[in-house]
């Protein structure tokens, strides 16, 4: 999966699960302050990402360090590469 495909799929998760407008989905956006997610939403986000990409990320400690949408793109890319 290319980088752009991963970005598109992650954005789809935000649009489908959280109904966030496409225009807001920029890599620099802080998922808490700009997009309004809270710690419980992160659990839903992880589940949605797992379903979308078919990977297991729930127990990964690096999730705690995620702050921006760009961090999620990067994290998902790393997990995708690891799953290959």
């Amino acid at each position: 999966m290319t980088k752009q495909e991963i970005i598109t799929k992650v954005n789809e998760v935000f649009e489908e699960s959280f109904e966030i407008e496409k225009e807001k989905l920029q890599p620099q956006m802080n998922i808490f302050e700009d997009l309004g997610l809270d710690s419980l939403d992160i659990v839903d986000l992880v589940v949605a990402l797992q379903e979308k990409f078919g990977i297991k990320i729930r127990d990964d400690e690096r999730i705690r360090a995620i702050r921006s949408l760009g961090d999620i793109y990067q994290f998902t890319m790393t997990m995708q590469n690891k799953a290959k």
Partner: peptide, 8 residues
């Protein structure tokens, strides 16, 4: 609505 959409 899901919790996120509801809160917003």
């Amino acid at each position: 609505l899901n919790p996120f959409t509801l809160k917003n």
